[in-house]
Design a protein around this nucleic acid. Structure first.
Lengths: 128, 128
DNA sequence: GTCATTGCAAACGCTTTGCATCTGT
DNA sequence: ACAGATGCAAAGCGTTTGCAATGAC
């Protein structure tokens, strides 16, 4: 089902809409509960399938909470990384042009093309 | 059991020793398998309990892989990243002092302490 | 002897999947 | 009509926990 084409169905539209209506990172379970509460019931499996597919196409950001739950958020456009508090889960978006260039260069130096990367920063934020 | 006091037993010693013998982040399962293979069998639950406790006391770093598995590493062991070929799986170890400093600085600027990070670079290597 | 630790297996929570049904085009 | 999406319930996986047995001091 994945790459490049989604949204033919009521369910997928409900998921993407609900996701975009939420600024914060949201778990699949929570999204599912919210949809159900909002009247537009969607199967949990479908929520997972849609989110997985959206993530594969890079249309949403995914990351893992400290206890291993996946949380999703509609991309706020462009490429960026996350600074995540391991205590409270607060996240800050980070842009780092220097890092982008560095990864690109290092990869090329080793003969790699079509370069992509993942970077997450963890710490304890001062709200503690 | 937790805070500040561990290691009275053969099992806990085996876990910490094996962990320190490994530079990279390692999952509980893998550690368990390695211990078993190495002759010093330890129950899986005990491996988990020990790692959790060590992590709680800040004696090991913990983070989550992309698929939600927890991986552990003895603090202060050599740190590096990986450049991974998405076609053949070939992996190159990368050291990037600049990136280390950058993540540290960015995190501090946002009031985060106790900073750790994950970074993986993906691409297609020239062996194709 | 006392109290913490171990090991096993059962329980858990999140996620994925098999399969029959339903939908969109 | 057909390919793909859906829903349910069952299976998977990593992780945690209850509890009796074991081990440390």
């Amino acid at each position: 089902m994945s790459t490049q084409s989604r949204r033919p169905t009521r369910q997928q539209l409900a998921v993407t809409t609900e996701l975009q209506a939420t600024a914060d990172f949201t778990s699949a379970q929570e999204l599912h509960a919210r949809l159900r509460a909002g009247g537009s019931a969607v199967g949990l499996a479908t929520v997972y399938r849609t989110l997985t597919s959206l993530a594969a196409d890079g249309e949403v950001d995914v990351l893992r909470t400290g206890d291993g739950e996946a949380v999703y958020r509609a991309c706020s456009s462009g490429h960026h990384h996350h600074l995540v508090c391991r205590d409270c889960g607060r996240t800050v978006e980070i842009a780092g042009p220097a890092v982008e260039k560095w990864t690109e260069r290092v990869a090329r130096e080793h003969g790699f093309t079509d370069v992509a990367h993942t970077l997450e920063i963890f710490g304890s934020c001062d709200a503690h």
